[in-house]
Nucleic acid binder design. Structure first.
Lengths: 215, 215
DNA sequence: TTTCGAAACAAACGATTGTTTGGTATTGAC
DNA sequence: GTCAATACCAAACAATCGTTTGTTTCGAAA
């Protein structure tokens, strides 16, 4: 119903923990794995990312998220002033994580096609990995009702691919913008047909790039 | 919330106008344009298609659809037993319309690449045309919670592209399945970045195919 | 030991969701 | 003129939505 792009911004009552001074208050030992799911706020973002990515924004209720974090629905508003703000936080986190993964993948590589392939594999693996943050990056099909904040975050992420494609030795007559958008679309769309048993994300990406590659 | 794939199917009370004997009852002159928006049921499908395609399934309420058709919400249940059934009807209509458009586009053409280009242009024009049925075809990103009926409809539509791509003289080492899925993904994704002022759908598709074309 | 603030619970708010029920015009067929 | 069917209105249903309010818990700083 509510398109989320609406510039509502009513008083925003409690404002909540917008200032994060460092590591004060309840330290919360890192849970099971090696990573740092410190901080309850980050736990909320992780679970919300999984749910938004799986069921979409409208299809995910605040109660779903609260249940996943094992707190009551109202308690979410201690961390985020609204569902839309929570989504923006989730999206920003997903962008930063994906950026890190892509940048790590292309480091130490020099060949333009190799760099692009590494970046695409990292990108697609993030998209197709379940319990991953990255699926929210493509959870909205219609940009029109998206917060501006999210649109610029997406643009900053895609600019990495813009640079990688600019380095490619492509023949004349190839539109690099369409090349980028087509490639990103192909990868995003894998989420609709990918099945864990079959081809790996890396194999899929290599075959896709093999189709678009020119020498 | 409700993933729509749930096999609920409770008694389905009134069953409603499932039998359509032909053209009995209230003839309803074709409204303004030349086409045939005869039949109130079809008007509901048209408006629902536009709304589902624009705001998604979860983002569109039965009240939205009813308001667009200018009837009360409850009256929709005279035509369709549930929101999900309405969506299936909309999807089926979109598939049949798109199939017609694509088949008409490739008729009279023999060159494999020309046939594929014509089909892709027709497909993408349907997707990007506002007030069009076709956007619902890609309104769901997660196949997992989709009615089986819809999945098989989609498969039947995509099989046309399967045949067109099978005719292409592609070099060895090109995976035709990935070729198809990548191409369809590129085209579907245009809906996220297409802007009416810029390049036409036909231009976009030609540039896309120029990238993937081999001789 | 007291104080304080972050984090949560408990319970509800009004609005909106898909849907149901029962009544009412209008129509073409008999 | 009667009849049945179609298409709709009017009004409500329980469930769920995002959100608010007031209170409680509890660790850390003072």
């Amino acid at each position: 119903m509510k398109p989320m792009g609406s510039k509502s911004r009513t008083t925003r009552t409690v404002a909540s923990s917008r200032t994060r001074p460092g590591k004060t208050s309840r330290p919360r030992a890192a849970s099971k794995k090696s990573e740092i799911p410190d901080d309850r706020r980050q736990v909320v973002i992780n679970e919300a990312a999984r749910l938004f990515g799986t069921k979409g924004y409208e299809g995910t209720s605040m109660r779903d998220i609260a249940a996943a974090v094992k707190i009551l629905p109202g308690s979410l508003y201690h961390h985020f002033p609204s569902k839309e703000d929570l989504f923006v936080a989730v999206y920003a986190f997903a962008v930063s994580q994906s950026l890190d993964a892509v940048r790590a993948a292309i480091a130490n590589r020099t060949d333009p096609w190799t760099r692009l392939e590494a970046a695409c594999i990292a990108h697609t693996q993030g998209l197709l990995d379940n319990n991953s943050y990255a699926a929210v990056l493509i959870s909205h099909l219609s940009v029109s009702h998206l917060p501006n904040q999210v649109v610029s975050l997406r643009d900053s992420y895609e600019s990495v691919f813009k640079e990688l494609i600019a380095e490619l030795p492509l023949p004349q007559g190839i539109d690099r913008r369409i090349f980028r958008l087509g490639l990103l679309g192909s990868m995003s769309w894998t989420i609709t047909w990918y099945r864990p048993g079959g081809e790996t994300p890396a194999t899929i990406v290599r075959k896709l790039l093999n189709i678009m590659r020119r020498e």
